[in-house]
Design a protein around this nucleic acid. Structure first.
Lengths: 226, 226
DNA sequence: ATTCACACATTGGTTGATCATTGTCTAGTA
DNA sequence: TACTAGACAATGATCAACCAATGTGTGAAT
C-alpha cells in the first residue's frame, strides 16, 4: 500500500469530489482538514489540487477556501493526439497533409508578410547546408510551419499543428533514408524554393500546385509502391 | 507584476524547457538551482512541475533529478478548444472553413460509399422539413459532418471536428436570423443538394466548387459587409 | 590493479511554522 | 437599534529545515 503515492492522491481526491456530490462553486473542506480525512499528507493533497486547478476542475483563493469549478471542464474540451494516433495510419496522415497543406500554401501566398517571406528564404538557405538527415528533417519541418504561419489564420495554424503532432507521434523513428547524408540535388530543395517563389510573387495557384507536387514526391519516397 | 503567480511559473517553466533544447530524458537543473535561475520560489516551481508531471512532460525521482519526458509533451498532448478560441475570431473560423471544407467535399467525392450517399440524401430531405432555425442548424451541421466522414480519413475528420468545436465555442448564441423560420427557398437547400449530387456522381471538382459556393453564401449571410 | 564497503554530497519529497488574505464576530458609538 | 471599526479566526500560500533515496568518490583489502 505504498504505491499510492505518485497518483493515488489525485485519484482519491477525484473520487472524493465526485462521490461527494458537490455542485459547481460549492466549497470543499479546508486543506488541513481534508488531508486528515483522506489520510494523506498536505503536500500530496496540494500537489493533487495543483493538477485539478490546472485542469480547471477547481479554483481556490487565500482566506476563502477551495471550490469546485465548472464540472464540464473535464469533458471533451480537448482532443488527445495520442488517442487519435491509435486510430489512424501513416498513409492516412500523409493523405491528410496532401489535402490540407496545398491549401495552406495557397492562403500563405495571399497573406504572407515580407517578414514571412524573409524567414522562408532563410529556411531554404539553411536547408542546403544541412549535413545530417536529422538536421534536414528539422529544417524541413520549420519550412512547413513557416508556410502555415504565413496564412495568419489561427484555426488553420492549430489544425496544422495537430496534424504535425500526429505525424511525429506516428512515424516517430521511421526516418531511415536511402543515402547517408542529404544530397544537394535532393528534390525537396528545388520544390521548397518553387513554393517560396510562388508565395513571394503572390501566385496562390502556383503555391498550391508547388506544395502538392512536393508532398506527392515526399509520399512517393515514403511509399514507393505508389 | 504580482499577477504572474497563478500560471506564470508554469508558462515560464515551459518556455525554459522548450528553448533550452533539452532532448528526451535529458536531466534538467535541480529544483533549488532552477528556482533561483527563474527567480521564483521553490513551491511555485514544484507546483508547475506537478502539472508538467501530470501531463507526462517530465518525470522525476528522488536523489536522481528531474528529466524531460517524451518530447511531444511540451506542447501538451492535447489542444484545448477553449484556449484556441481565445486567440481567434468568427471571421478567422469562417475563413478556415472556406479553406478546409471544399477540400473535404472533394475527398468525399472520391471516397464516399453508397451508404454515405444514402445518409446524405436522408439529411437533405430532413433539412427541408425543418420548422425552426434550431432544427435547421442541427441538420446543417449533420450534413457537413457526414461529408467529412465520407472522406474516410481519420486525421481529416478530427481536424474538422476541432474546427467545428471551435465554431460552436465562438459563435455560441449568435444564431439570430432575418426570418423567423427557415423558408423552403433558402439557398442552402439547393447548395447542399448540389454537393450531394456531385459526390454521388464522383465529380470531385464539382463537389469542391459546390462546397466553396455554399460556404461563401453562408459567410455573406454572417458578414453582409463583404 | 580490482573490488567492495562505506562515508558523503546531491536531489526530490515532506513537514511544521509563518505570512497574507478574507470572512466574521464583537464592542463601541451615534 | 443601526452601523462602523477593529480584533480575531480560518484559510491558502510560502518558506526553511529536515528526511529518505540515489549517485559518486575514496580507501582499504585482496
Amino acid at each position: 500500500m505504498k504505491r499510492e503515492n505518485s497518483e493515488g492522491a489525485l485519484i482519491q481526491l477525484r473520487a472524493y469530489i465526485a462521490q461527494g456530490e458537490f455542485e459547481t462553486n460549492d466549497r470543499l473542506p479546508a486543506e488541513r482538514e481534508l488531508c486528515e480525512t483522506l489520510g494523506i499528507g498536505r503536500s500530496e493533497l496540494r500537489k493533487a489540487f495543483a493538477i485539478l486547478e490546472s485542469e480547471g476542475a477547481i479554483w481556490r483563493h487565500v482566506g476563502r477556501g477551495t471550490f469546485v469549478g465548472n464540472g464540464k471542464g473535464q469533458g471533451p474540451d480537448y482532443l488527445s493526439i495520442a488517442d487519435i494516433a491509435k486510430r489512424t495510419t501513416p498513409r492516412e496522415v500523409m493523405h491528410a497533409r496532401l489535402v490540407l497543406e496545398p491549401m495552406l500554401a495557397r492562403e500563405a501566398a495571399m497573406h504572407a508578410t515580407a517578414e514571412h517571406v524573409e524567414q522562408l528564404r532563410d529556411c531554404c538557405a539553411k536547408a542546403r547546408e544541412a549535413t545530417t538527415w536529422r538536421q534536414y528533417e528539422s529544417i524541413d519541418n520549420q519550412f512547413h510551419s513557416l508556410v502555415t504561419e504565413a496564412t495568419q489564420n489561427t484555426p488553420l495554424i492549430t489544425m496544422y499543428e495537430q496534424l504535425n503532432a500526429l505525424r511525429r507521434t506516428i512515424v516517430w523513428g521511421c526516418l531511415h533514408r536511402h543515402t547517408e547524408t542529404p544530397t544537394p540535388d535532393h528534390h525537396s530543395f528545388a520544390e521548397h524554393e518553387a513554393i517560396l517563389e510562388a508565395i513571394e510573387q503572390r501566385n496562390s495557384e502556383a503555391a498550391q500546385i508547388g506544395m502538392k507536387r512536393h508532398l506527392q514526391a515526399v509520399r512517393d519516397d515514403m511509399f514507393p509502391s505508389d
